[in-house]
C-alpha cells in the first residue's frame, strides 16, 4: 500500500494477492458469516436468512477493508481463511445440533 518509488514485480504480486484476498477471501468469509447469522438470528428461518443477507454487504465491506489494511498480503489471506474456517465451522456445528435436536 505504500507508495513505492519503483513498482517492482514483487510489489505488484503482493498487491494482486492482497486484492484477491480481499475480493475472493472476503467473499468466502462473508458467505460463511451470512450462513452463521441466518442460523443465529432470532426470527423464523426464512426471515433470518433475509436479515443476514441484507447485513452481509456490511460484513463484506468490513472484510475487504480489513484485508486491504492488513500488514501484508500473507496476513490478509491468513485472516480471511481463518475467519471463513471458523465461521463455517460454527455454522456447521449449529446445523448438526439443530438436525440432531429435530430427530
Amino acid at each position: 500500500m505504500k507508495k513505492e518509488s519503483t513498482l517492482t514485480p514483487a510489489y505488484r504480486w503482493s498487491v494482486a494477492s492482497r486484492v484477491a484476498a480481499a475480493a475472493l477471501g472476503g467473499y468466502a468469509l462473508t458467505s460463511a458469516a451470512t450462513v452463521l447469522l441466518s442460523l443465529l438470528w432470532p426470527a423464523p428461518r426464512a426471515q433470518a436468512v433475509l436479515w443476514a443477507t441484507m447485513i452481509s454487504f456490511t460484513v463484506y465491506t468490513v472484510a475487504v477493508i480489513w484485508a486491504v489494511h492488513a500488514r501484508s498480503a500473507g496476513r490478509a489471506w491468513a485472516g480471511m481463511v481463518a475467519g471463513t474456517v471458523l465461521l463455517s465451522g460454527i455454522a456447521w456445528l449449529l446445523w448438526l445440533v439443530e438436525q440432531g435436536g429435530g430427530a
Partner: peptide, 10 residues
C-alpha cells in the same frame, strides 16, 4: 449477489 444463506439452508 449473496446467495450463500438461502442456498445453504434451503
Amino acid at each position: 449477489y449473496m446467495p450463500a444463506g438461502r442456498d445453504m439452508l434451503y
